[in-house]
């Protein structure tokens, strides 16, 4: 019992990561609405950010600056990497939203099945 509780609570952030990744992945595949697809992509990426930040965390640790009385340091690099990844993610979202705006102008809809249907009608 003890070990199960440890597994669940001790790795709480990793469970959250798994949940976020799966919610995101499911949404990307299952949603027809392009906005929701993009939102789920963002959730998926957020899961990865959280994963990296969890890797970088150490209990009771400080920033890596040499000072008296401190011996446990946390590695700041995973967080720095995630700053870059967040910037990349924001840029991706911006391009995605711009595309959705243009899709809406061209098709009058942002539901994927409706768009495909319109394409099919056009071909016939």
């Amino acid at each position: 019992m003890e070990s199960v509780l440890d597994l669940v609570l001790g790795h709480f952030n990793y469970w959250a990561v798994i949940a976020l990744l799966m919610i995101g992945l499911y949404g990307i595949i299952a949603r027809q609405n392009l906005l929701k697809k993009l939102a789920c992509l963002s959730i998926f990426q957020t899961g990865v950010f959280l994963l990296f930040i969890s890797w970088g965390y150490r209990h009771d640790a400080t920033v890596p600056i040499l000072a008296e009385g401190f011996s446990r340091y946390a590695n700041p690099l995973p967080q720095v990497l995630m700053l870059t990844a967040i910037v990349v993610g924001v840029a991706t979202l911006a391009v995605g939203y711009a595309l959705i705006v243009r899709i809406h102008k061209a098709y009058g809809s942002i539901e994927e099945d409706a768009i495909l249907e319109k394409d099919q009608q056009e071909q016939e």
């Binding site: 993009l38 991706t92 595309l99 768009i115 394409d119």
Partner: peptide, 11 residues
Amino acid sequence: RALLAAFRYLV
């Protein structure tokens, strides 16, 4: 149709 192709490529 290039728009939807680009969007799917993006995702």
